[in-house]
Design a binder for these strands. Structure first.
Length: 426
RNA sequence: GGAGGGAUGGCAGAGCGGUUGAAUGCGGCGGUCUUGAAAACCGUUAGCCCGCAAGGGCUCGUAGGUUCAAAUCCUACUCCCUCCGCCA
């Protein structure tokens, strides 16, 4: 959520930001509502001021045992006028709030301007897509041969877009999650959390998924709870309505969670195999930081995700998302993509964003500045470290051998009893 | 699922219709004293909104209601605690 005062004073900048994101919203309509609101507010406050004074008079008269009938009658009409104004004001404030919740974040000046993903900039490529001297198998072929996954049975029990990991496939998935959590807690200074996978409406609104993306979420209607699309939601909201001391910052959290996405309407070739599924595992990184450090923290966050890919010995590239492709709440975002030799494409496996104070305003997450004693909004960041389904794909396809086995990177072996390869199980 | 109790400032805790945004204690900050510290004493110590400012308004879990007037009375909801039942 943007600050109304900021919008009032920077309406041109907000309009430009909306245009660059291809969002059609009329800021002037909002500003009109706002000036109406302030007019009503002034009137109401003056009324209340007078009423309070007179009410104190009545209290005095009463303790002196004097009659108060006339004063009480006079105040009754004032009170009626007051509640009239209150209703009008509340209606205006509701409209303004609803409007504000639909305005996306203003992007950072360094974000490339463009209409869509074509305008994303490749920041750097690390490692190279591997050249093979044998026919490359896809993760589906390897998964079947090595008995790692069973998609037909997953479809039987749940439907398409779900994965059943089997035997060493389940073990392999768990090993990677453990490897990632250990890396981020032991080497990068994050505190591990294990959050609920269901959250309430306030949490979904706090991080910016609601109200816009309700159709993308799994929702339990009887309880008005949502299955989390990412651990970002519960983890960012753990500090909702709290005030940090500045000395508490920065705060780093990492959490494993399953992530649930309806992916409504996204049927097509992308849904083949494991690239786009309704449920996947992810290790998330979340930071709460002082505003002046947030862009440095973003670079460090990307570095933490990169380190995981390097240890898994996978080639990857980093994109700076354009104004047309960046998500609703982000001020700046880097996507990290791994190369899939089987699909011959780059797959997004991490998305690292600085939200500045956009989420902090919605979720009311603040800190007390040590120097001024003033309370101010923190900046929040998050990034995948990493998203598993695509990493599973890249690991199998990139590290495959001619005989259909998969060589494991050294960093992962301790999590699989020292095994050097995934081999067929009998 | 059933029965009862509760939710007040950073924390503890009073207030239960009227000059109470809120006693008191602890903690925090500033000062006096001290070579320094402790103790003692004095002062100070919520957030939000409108306003250039002066100033004003709002907020005692949340949302409604009663009243001239609500932290205080009523209703619903949320969360916490105790007991019973059930159960990974």
């Amino acid at each position: 959520m943007l600050d109304l005062k900021f919008i009032r004073e920077n309406s041109k900048r907000v309009e430009d930001a909306l245009k660059n994101r291809n969002v059609r919203l009329d800021v002037n309509e909002l500003l009109k509502l706002d000036s109406q609101r302030r007019a009503f507010l002034t009137e109401l406050e003056n009324l209340r001021h007078d009423k309070r004074k007179e009410s104190d008079e009545i209290a005095k008269l009463k303790t002196q045992g004097k009659p108060i009938e006339n004063e009480v009658a006079a105040l009754k009409t004032v009170s009626e006028r007051e509640s009239e104004l209150e209703q009008k004001l509340a209606e205006l404030e509701r409209q303004i709030k609803d409007f504000l919740l639909l305005i996306p974040n203003v992007t950072h000046p360094s974000v490339p301007t463009g209409a869509d993903a074509a305008a994303n900039q490749v920041v750097r490529v690390v490692g190279e897509p591997r050249k093979f001297d044998f026919p490359v198998r896809t993760h589906l072929e390897l998964g079947e041969y090595l008995k790692l996954i069973d998609l037909p049975r997953a479809a039987k029990i749940s439907g398409s877009g779900f994965v059943l990991f089997t035997g060493q496939g389940a073990r392999f998935e768990r090993a990677m999650i453990n490897f990632l959590l250990d890396l981020h807690t032991k080497e990068h200074g994050y505190t591990e959390l294990s959050p609920p996978f269901l959250v309430n409406r306030a949490s979904m609104t706090g991080t910016g998924q609601l109200p816009k993306l309700e159709a993308d979420m799994y929702r339990l209607k009887d309880d008005d709870l949502f299955l989390i699309p990412t651990a970002e939601v519960p983890v960012t909201n753990i500090h909702a309505n709290e005030v940090f001391e500045e000395s508490d910052l920065p705060k780093y959290y990492t959490a494993y969670s399953a992530c649930f996405r309806r992916e409504a309407g996204s049927y097509g070739k992308e849904t083949k195999g494991m690239t786009r599924v309704h449920q996947f595992d992810k290790v998330e990184l979340v930071k709460f930081v002082q505003p002046e450090t947030s862009y440095d923290e973003l670079e460090k966050l990307v570095g933490n995700a990169e380190r995981a890919l390097q240890k898994l010995e996978l080639p990857y590239r980093i994109l700076a998302l354009s104004t047309g492709d960046i998500s609703f709440a982000a001020a700046k975002c880097y996507d990290i993509e791994v190369w899939s030799p089987g699909l011959q494409t780059w797959l997004e496996c991490s998305s690292c964003s600085n939200f500045e104070d956009f989420q902090a305003r919605r979720a009311n997450i603040r800190y007390r500045q040590a120097a001024t004693k003033r309370v101010n909004f923190v900046h929040t960041l998050n990034g995948s470290g990493l998203g598993m389904a695509r990493i599973f794909i890249a690991m199998l396809e990139h590290h495959q051998n001619a005989d259909g086995t998969v060589t494991l990177p050294k960093a992962l072996r301790p999590y699989l009893d020292g095994a050097e390869r995934l081999v067929p199980q009998f």
